[in-house]
């Protein structure tokens, strides 16, 4: 079974029970110091492995970049 989510603005289907940690592992190769927001709140790194994604979640997976 999959659940519908929005990740970085795009609709995706992921297996039910996917954790934030699994999503991050899938998306962030080559990136260090990632941060995740879920439905407008920070998901602290310490909660990544225990936070399961829910249908309709809006996730932002962010990484450092150059900027003024």
């Amino acid at each position: 079974m999959t659940i519908p989510l929005t990740v970085n603005g795009s609709p995706v289907e992921l297996p039910a029970g996917t954790t934030v940690a699994a999503l991050v592992a899938q998306r962030t190769s080559g990136h260090d110091r990632v941060a995740v927001a879920r439905n407008g709140d920070v998901v602290p790194r310490s909660n990544w492995t225990t936070t399961e994604l829910s249908p309709g979640d809006r996730l932002e997976v962010l990484a450092p970049t150059a900027g003024g």
Binding site: N8, R27, E60, V61, L62, A63, P64, A66, G68
Partner: peptide, 8 residues
Amino acid sequence: TVALRRVE
């Protein structure tokens, strides 16, 4: 200064 952006 540095910034955060979507990982892509």
